[in-house]
Amino acid sequence: MPQSQVLIADDDPLLREILQHKLSAAGYAVRSVEDGRAALEQVQVERPDILVLDAMMPVMDGFEALRRLKDDPASSDIVVVMLTALKGDEDVVSALRLGAADYLAKPFNPDELVARLQRLAPAAQA
């Protein structure tokens, strides 16, 4: 059974590592990058099923990356889950409007994230 691919874009190395291990343990194939531009580039190279996206990253922020991803028909159906320290209502609303499938604020519960991802795109594809 092929694994679902998850791409993590976050500038915090500790968070990347925690997610890397947690999601691998849940059965996903995981890659990670440290900013929005790198995420878009990685999407071109190897299309993930899920993108876990931080908002505040250097070079290109998460909202901009999300917008571009959704604008491009080739990548618009990638499931995007925002995971960010921004807690404002307007940030949540604008992310969901832009096409994010879900929005979690940091600090987050890793088990909850895994459960939400499983619902959006199960680790093992049918």
């Binding site: 925690i18 940091k106 890793p110 088990d111």
Partner: peptide
Amino acid sequence: LEFLSLVRGADR
């Protein structure tokens, strides 16, 4: 502190 700013729940 760094860890707690990222993670809550059972792992915390």
